[in-house]
Design a protein around this nucleic acid. Structure first.
Length: 273
DNA sequence: AGAAGAACCTGGTAGC
DNA sequence: TGCTACCAGGTTCTTC
């Protein structure tokens, strides 16, 4: 369940090592992970072999490896994906679907649950890919502010939590950080988004930015499958996520779990209104 | 158009 | 011990 802070952590680690590296050899297995039609013609492996990596960017939960000749290799880690630096001779297990062999090491994309995706684009083509194309603003950018949220929430009857997880509204927020942000803002994730007062929207905006910045500083949140590219764990400790039945960290209430938008959600009914 | 829910996938675990 | 059932969740698709 890598969300924005986890993907950003991985991006930073990749950005330190990859630019300038040439892809000497590629192992690619698992066509179901490749977005249909990308690459349009030919095989992923042959298209990227011999190319040089020039940049490592992130957009929402997508990693974008810029290659020479205007190619972009987009990677989505899904729920259980990891990008690991490994020794070139390290064995490959059955969950490893893509390996880029570089000069002195290899980069392994492992994804046991196969929710991850890989796609190769030329130029601005990636703006065609649904999901990537319709991503909303980065929550840590200026574009993302109370005014934007208010516009997106206006008239909407869906729970705040659903809209926070909508990638068209906030790129990169998932199940964990939507709960964390609601907790910090003292807003129930069940509230109809369109009913939030301006002051509450401002609180939510500030809370989103705060939890994301905190988690990035802590190199992400460790939950089950997540590992950084160096193989280490994240240090972000959730305030409310996963704490069902335990004492609220802010008041005498007890954290409850409730399914919202088909996802486990955690909140304190006493101090989140 | 918006809201709700299912499907995709497999490792881990609870329960028997 | 070994089996079954279920859960986790990001995205896309379907239904209402």
């Amino acid at each position: 369940m890598p969300e924005l802070p986890e993907v950003e952590t991985i991006r930073c680690q990749l950005a330190r090592k990859l630019p300038g590296e040439k892809i000497e050899r590629v192992f690619a297995n698992c066509p179901s992970l490749v977005f249909r039609g990308y690459p349009r013609k030919g095989m992923l492996a042959e298209e990227i072999t011999g190319k040089k990596i020039v940049s490592v960017e992130r957009r929402g939960k997508y990693l974008l490896l810029g290659l020479d000749r205007g190619l972009t290799l987009a990677l989505h880690l899904g729920m259980s994906g990891t990008m690991l630096f490994r020794d070139k001779n390290a064995p490959r297990d059955r969950h490893c679907h893509l390996e880029l062999f570089l000069k002195n090491f290899k980069l392994s994309f492992r994804d046991p649950r196969m929710f991850g995706r890989v796609a190769l684009f030329k130029g601005q083509e990636f703006s065609l890919l649904p999901g990537l194309a319709r991503l909303g603003p980065e929550p840590l950018s200026r574009e993302f502010n109370p005014k934007w949220l208010a516009a997106k929430f206006q008239g909407r009857k869906a729970p705040v939590k659903s809209l926070l997880m909508d990638q068209r509204i906030a790129a990169g927020i998932g199940n964990i950080y939507s709960d964390e942000a609601c907790f910090l803002a003292r807003i129930s994730p069940l509230r109809k988004a369109g009913r939030l007062k301006p002051e509450e929207i401002s609180r939510l905006d500030a809370a989103i930015k705060k939890v994301l910045r905190e988690s990035i500083a802590a190199i992400g949140c460790t939950f089950r499958d997540y590992r950084t590219s160096e193989g280490t764990l994240g240090g972000y400790q959730p305030r409310v996520y996963g704490r069902e039945g335990r004492r609220c960290k802010r008041c005498p209430g007890t954290v409850v779990r409730k399914v919202i938008a088909n996802r486990s959600s955690f909140f304190c009914p006493k101090c989140q209104r």
